[in-house]
């Protein structure tokens, strides 16, 4: 177990190193670009050269990369050209807001998808199964911005029950939770269907296994068969899928935060991208990848815990 963990962590470090090199290569490889962006299209080549010199951009790539990496590792994430401040001074607040949004969504998705998936998968082909399956196909097929539009039309414009924007500012009379409902719902709708289908598929598969037959023919009630024999086996395969949703949630927050003007990490990334704010995008990209790779490790560990065949091999 420990050997496995250290291997995974080494792999994580390697992945992060390559990712950082890729990010660096994408944005800072060609020296002309950064200075040109800072100065705008109307600056003369001479001005660009001077700035290059000043920023040390004409030094060898490897030197600049090591310096950049060193800065990043020591927590110096650079200066945001969009927000006109240190990246460090904005990113953490935004992350907090996003954690609230994504965390709430995740907390809804996990139990709900397991319940729906198990309910659908325990009797394949039943009316309940068909309804849940088709329902989940439809919800995952509606892009977040579209479901945002649909839900806003109903609950904001037509019924007036909820706010159309979620600035997290309670001054306008909407409580924090009221502001969270729509963004969370949109994320849940989009993501839920996928996890439900994974859990269902796994459950369907488990229910055809001979050991389920053994359990039934032992005289266990259907409920006991599901709870004691099917559930744990059915959770092994989707476990990693569920954790991988964190990866999808990162994509989700960018869209949802744009739809509802939510002041989070995703909107910061988008705004920075639209205004070519390299430092913010770099920091956000590295952070997003770190989260996604760490979840993979957690997923592998959980998988090992759930599956005695691997635990004792």
């Amino acid at each position: 177990m420990l050997a496995f963990l250290s291997k995974r962590i080494a792999l994580l470090a390697f992945t992060m190193l390559v990712v950082s090199a890729l990010v660096f290569a994408a944005f800072e490889f060609t020296p002309g670009q950064v200075a040109r962006k800072v100065l705008g299209p109307f600056a003369t080549q001479n001005q660009v050269d001077i700035l290059n010199e000043k920023m040390g951009l004409n030094r060898p790539v490897i030197v600049r990369y090591s310096e950049w990496l060193g800065n990043t590792l020591t927590g110096d994430l650079g200066f945001s050209t969009l927000y006109k401040t240190e990246v460090n001074s904005i990113i953490w607040d935004r992350l907090g807001n996003t954690l609230l949004l994504a965390g709430t969504a995740f907390a809804v998705i996990v139990p709900l998808s397991i319940i729906l998936g198990i309910a659908a998968g325990m009797r394949e082909g039943s009316i309940l199964d068909r309804s849940i399956s088709v329902g989940s196909i439809v919800t995952t097929s509606v892009p977040e911005f579209a479901s945002g539009v649909f839900l806003a039309s109903i609950f904001v414009i037509w019924l007036g029950w909820l706010p159309g924007t979620s600035s997290l500012d309670t001054g306008a009379g909407w409580s924090l939770w009221q502001q969270l409902i729509l963004p969370v719902t949109v994320m849940v709708l989009y993501d839920l269907g996928y996890v439900v289908r994974m859990v269902r598929a796994s459950m369907v598969e488990v229910m055809t296994r001979p050991y389920i037959r053994t359990a039934v023919l032992k005289g266990l009630s259907f409920r006991a068969v599901i709870m004691k024999h099917a559930l744990r086996n059915a959770m092994i395969a989707p476990f990693t899928v569920i954790l991988l949703q964190i990866n999808y949630l990162i994509t989700g927050v960018v869209v949802v935060e744009a739809v509802f003007a939510y002041p989070g990490f995703g909107r910061m990334l988008l705004e920075a991208a639209l205004s070519q704010d390299v430092a913010v995008v770099e920091a956000a990209a590295l952070f997003a990848v770190l989260v996604s790779v760490s979840t993979q490790i957690a997923g592998d560990l959980g998988y090992m815990m759930l599956n005695p065949r691997i635990r004792f091999s």
Binding site: A26, F27, I250, T251, A273, V281, V289
Partner: peptide, 19 residues
């Protein structure tokens, strides 16, 4: 594959489009 898949899709899109 691992490395490419460790990027959330939107981050990759943003990087490609920005670049």
């Amino acid at each position: 594959s691992d490395i490419v898949l460790s990027f959330p899709a939107i981050v990759l899109y943003i990087i490609v489009i920005m670049r």
